[in-house]
Structure formats: C-alpha cells, structure tokens
Design a protein around this nucleic acid. Structure first.
Length: 279
DNA sequence: AAGGGTGTTGAAAG
DNA sequence: GCTTTCAACACCCT
C-alpha cells in the first residue's frame, strides 16, 4: 500500500527510467480505470507524445507529456513495472504503455482501485479532488496557525483529522499512527482540544517521520514493492503501526489496536495517554 | 466455506 | 456545510 513516501520512491525511480521516452500506443484492458476519457481518446491523445517529467503531490503522480498530463493514483496496490514488450501480459496488468524503443510500462493493480486521467498540461491542480488538497506534511505551508484554524470548531478525532487529505496531503493510515506516537497524542483526542503545543508536535512529527521514511524508500507492508522491486526499509522503524501486542520502544507498555473511523489504529497507552476531559 | 479485514477516495446519506 | 458511512475490488486469513 503505497503512501506518500512510497509514491515518492516510485516517482524518483520511474523518472530515471522513462523520462524522455515516447509512447507509441497504449493498451487499456480495464476501461473503468480511465476517467473521464474513453479508453480510445485516452490512448489516442497520449500516443506519440514524449514524457518530459514526473511530479508528485500527496499520493498523486503527474506524468507531464508535451501537451497533456497523465494523473495517476495508485490507491491500494497500484504498481508500475518497466519490461520488454515481448514479455507476456499478466493478469493484473490493466494499462500498458508501449514506448517507441521496445520497452513497455505496465500498470499492475490487483484490486483495480487505482485511477488514471488525462488533462491538458498544467491543469492538474484544477481537477476536483486535487484542487481541495491541503499542504504536504513536509511543506512550509503546514503551519501552526493553519492547523489551529482547521481544528477550531471540530470534535473529530485527531486520527481522522490527519487522514483528511484536505487538511494535509499525503498522510495515510501508517504514517498518521506514527505521527501521533511522535506527538504523544491519543488517536481519539478531539481536535478542538489540541493545544498550540500539541499542534507544534504534530507538525514536527509530520516532518521528521515523513522525511525519514522518504530517505529509507518508504515502508513495505504486505505486498507493496516499488517499481524496481526495492523493499522500503522504513518498516523496521515503525514505532506503533502493525505492532499490536508488541512492546513500546520508549516505555515497554504493550501496543494496543483499536478502530477509529473504521480504520485500524495502533498506539501506546502510556506514551499516548488520553487527555482528561476538561470539566 | 463464508465472512471480515485490509486502505484510499469520492459519492451518498445523515 | 460538516461528518459519517459505504462502495469500488481482490485477496488473505480465520
């Protein structure tokens, strides 16, 4: 499950492998993945264009061609593989980009949750969904006053709040758990109860956790492997996520798993004590 | 062997 | 308008 650090690894890896290549044609095997274009217009528009750069915002990838941009979201299990065109098409390869040099980029997604759309170049930030996204966790735009403003009149649990992409772009389930451990906050804390100091620790946590994860190429939980088949090394540094019944590195309490907003949530009951309700 | 868990997003419902 | 629930889908585990 690629989160932002994994997507960044994919971006960097793909950049070095396919920027400069020209598409000859595209095979769409699962039309529902393409929106709102028909597979035909999607394929016709992008064919014969040269890839100039790959950009990332939150968990979205932007493939910038000469006149169009391909927006790709990997959702749960999307992966890209670069292979010779002569190799057989696999079951879960839903979109295949055939380059003019004999290589092909295969989009592989067992659960078919991933999405692709083509927009005129430069317009990616005006498409619905992307236009509303908040600043990235490592951005200077993620400030105390910005977050404090968002928390004012809301009783949402801080876990749910941080998963909301319109608040911060790119935090997923794994990293929110890690950020909350860093900030020593119980995941159920209502956000209107957060102090300025809490917000400062959340922002510090975002920056240190995410930048460290990007450094290590992301986490690999379950099936996720990046386009080069490289395994992210951040998993070994996870403090709480996926560590139910294991001991906290800081205090040796037993890590607990609960559900918050329907999402599996891991935390240390001692390091992340629930705040006493004020009156 | 049926059913629940897995995670992201957007649409629908409250 | 804000928040919660669910659907999209496939695979793994019990």
């Amino acid at each position: 499950m690629p989160e932002m650090p994994e997507v960044e690894t994919v971006r960097a890896t793909l950049s070095s492998m396919i920027v400069g290549k020209t598409i000859d044609h595209i095979l769409v095997r699962y039309p529902k993945m393409i929106q709102p274009d028909t597979p035909e217009s999607f394929s016709n528009s992008l064919s014969h264009q040269t890839l100039e750069s790959i950009e990332r915002y939150g968990k979205y990838l932007f493939f910038h061609f000469q006149t169009d941009t391909l927006i790709s979201h990997l959702r749960m299990e999307g992966k890209y593989f670069l292979r010779p065109q002569s190799e057989p098409v696999l079951n879960h390869e839903h979109v295949i980009f055939y380059f003019t040099d004999g290589l092909s980029l295969r989009y592989h997604d067992t659960r078919k949750f991933g999405t692709m759309q083509r927009v005129p170049r430069g317009t990616q930030f005006s498409v619905p969904g992307i236009i509303k996204m908040g600043p990235e966790p490592i951005s200077n735009d993620l400030t105390v006053s910005y977050l404090l403003g968002k928390t004012k009149n809301s009783f949402r649990p801080v876990k749910t709040f941080l998963l909301d992409q319109t608040v911060v772009s790119g935090l997923g389930n794994i990293y929110v758990d890690e950020v909350l451990f860093y900030a020593k906050l119980h995941p159920l804390t209502p956000v209107n109860q957060l102090t300025k100091n809490d917000i400062v620790r959340i922002i510090d946590g975002c920056k240190s956790v995410i930048s460290r994860a990007i450094e290590l190429g992301g986490s690999t939980i379950r099936s996720y492997v990046s386009s080069l088949g490289v395994t992210g090394r951040f998993q070994t540094e996870l403090a709480v996520h996926m560590r139910k019944d294991e001991l906290c590195n800081k205090c040796e309490s037993t890590i607990i798993k609960i559900k918050v907003g329907g999402r599996g949530t891991y935390y240390c009951p001692l390091c992340q004590k629930e705040k006493r309700k004020s009156r």
